[in-house]
Design a protein around this nucleic acid. Sequence first.
DNA 1: TAGGCCATCTGGTCCT
DNA 2: AGGACCAGATGGCCTA
Length: 184
Amino acid sequence: LLPPVPGAHGAPPSPQEGPGRRRRRGRCRARNEAALHSLRKSRRVKANDRERNRMHHLNAALDELRSVLPSFPEDTKLTKIETLRFAYNYIWALSETLRLADQRLHAAPRERLLPGYLSPAAPPSPGSDAGSWRSAGSSFSACASNPSSPATSEDYGYGPTEPLFAACHRLPPATPAALGSPRR
DNA sequence: TAGGCCATCTGGTCCT
DNA sequence: AGGACCAGATGGCCTA
């Protein structure tokens, strides 16, 4: 809250003060109120400027996040909420992939390591897939949206060797709580 | 035209 | 005291 400017709301003139004094006091008050108004205004303008800047930084960070997520067709851009949810799911899928790979490595040393497993060719390219991701019920919606009932691996027919982006389907949906609850 | 997304403004609260 | 952060309000733009 803006602090009161001293003298802006002065006490009414005492009975001892003459009419001349009263006029001077009135002019003084008007000047103070004008000063208060311009002070408030300049503070507001500065605060707006900072807020705009802050949001620009936030958006820049969001763009950076978009840039490290699997790419999409040039003309499509994830919304803010989609970006957050997709990032959440993508991280989950990555760690799940690592976990599965680790499991495999320890369970069956050589022969069960599929050729090309985890190679760039293994996971379906998000870019190539992305065209269909926007369509209803597509894998994209499963990743970036917040479905009330998340799809299961069975729904999509992926086995235990599912690649990264397929794994994204099985994800527990990103919830507001998972994305961080408000301070207040 | 309704609904979604976004940028900006604004006032309140918290923190340094 | 001033800056950072936050959420609500508002208006513009776009799309189905």
